[in-house]
Structures are given as structure tokens and as C-alpha cells.
Amino acid sequence: MTFEQFIFYIFATVTIVSAIGVVTMRNPVYAALFLILAFFTSAATWILLEAEFLGVVLVLVYVGAVMVLFLFVIMMLDINIDPLREGFIRYLPVGILVAVIVAAEIIIVLSSDTFNMAIPDPMPLSYSNTKALGEILYTEYVYPFELAAVILVVAIIAAISLTMRKRNDKTKRQNISEQVRVKSKDRLRIINMKSEEKQ
């Protein structure tokens, strides 16, 4: 076993264990933290594959932005997880059975000759993964790239149209321009009245 393989197996094991943690944890905050760990170790695996840029982006975007927001949401919502977990034990045997069968089949296939491929040579030191991605992203892959952008637009439209509620006009709010333009006579009314006689 080379050193690289050793590192790979460590990261792969941590990824799998933390992925199991995501679905089995009772506390959603722990589950989210396990997901962050899974993202970190997958980023490490990508870096092992010489895809440094993708590894860095995975950490920056998913761990740095998405998961932090996600944690915020979990903490603000205070989800009661118990009703969601009803039937977990009841379905567990079937689930494990299916998982074991699928895993066994995949292991048989993966250990067959098909996947017995030569290890590719590492790229030379001057190779830059970032540059290679940049060169094809806007040229060869411009069509899929634009479509990915369209998918994000749809996600935004869907999220907004599903969550936005029109405020009714009973809410109290300030209208600053009106406040600034106000004149003393709008506020103060001077009434001419006779003084009352002394009794």
C-alpha cells in the first residue's frame, strides 16, 4: 500500500462514517456537523485526485456558506425530531437487508476485472487544475454551464414563490419621507377659544 492509498482509505472511511452519522443522529445539529465533516473529507479526496480547485470550492461554498446557513435554520426552527423518526426501528431490518444486498453486489462488481485499471501517472508539477477547468468551462462546456445557471434561477424563483407572503396593511411601519416633509401645522392645531369665566 502506497502512502497515497493509505491517506485515501483514511479519508474514505471518515466520509462513510460521517455519512452514516448524518442519517442516524438524533440531534439535527450533530447531523449537520457530520455533514460538514463529510464535505471536508470529500474535499480531501478530490485534492488527492489533483482537483485542488474543486476541493477548495467545496469547502468554501458548502462548508463556509451553505452549511452555516443550514445550521442557522436548524437552530432557529427548533424541530422536534421524534415524530420524524417514528417507524425507524420498524423499517430498519428491511432497510439493512436491502442495503446489504446492494452493497454486496457492488462489492462483487467492483472487485471484478472490469475495474482493474492501471493507475494513471500523476500530472507534472506545472499542471494547474484551475487553469484546465477555466479553459473548458466557458468554451467546450458553455451550454451545460449556462443551463446550470438556469437551474439556479429556477431554484430562486421556486423558493421565493413558495415562501413569500404579502404583508397585510395593518403592519406598523415608518414612512421616512413623510416624516421629514411634515410641517408644524400638520401636527399642531391651534384653536381659538374663549377663556372660560371664573365661577
Binding site: Y143, P144, L147, A148, V150, I151, A155, I157, A158, L162
Partner: peptide
């Protein structure tokens, strides 16, 4: 996009674009 896809990448992207819109429409 799905109909005129010639790579698996575009089949998947078209499918996601379709499905995402449909999920939102069902939940409308």
C-alpha cells in the same frame, strides 16, 4: 434540453431543470 441532449450531462441537467420546476408547481 432533454430531447436534444447528446451527452449524459445534458440529459441530467435538462431532467433537473424539468423536475425542479415541477416540484415547485406541485407545491404551489
Amino acid at each position: 434540453v432533454m430531447v436534444s441532449a447528446k451527452t449524459m450531462l445534458l440529459i441530467y441537467l435538462g431532467l433537473e431543470l424539468l423536475s425542479l420546476s415541477l416540484y415547485a408547481m406541485v407545491a404551489f
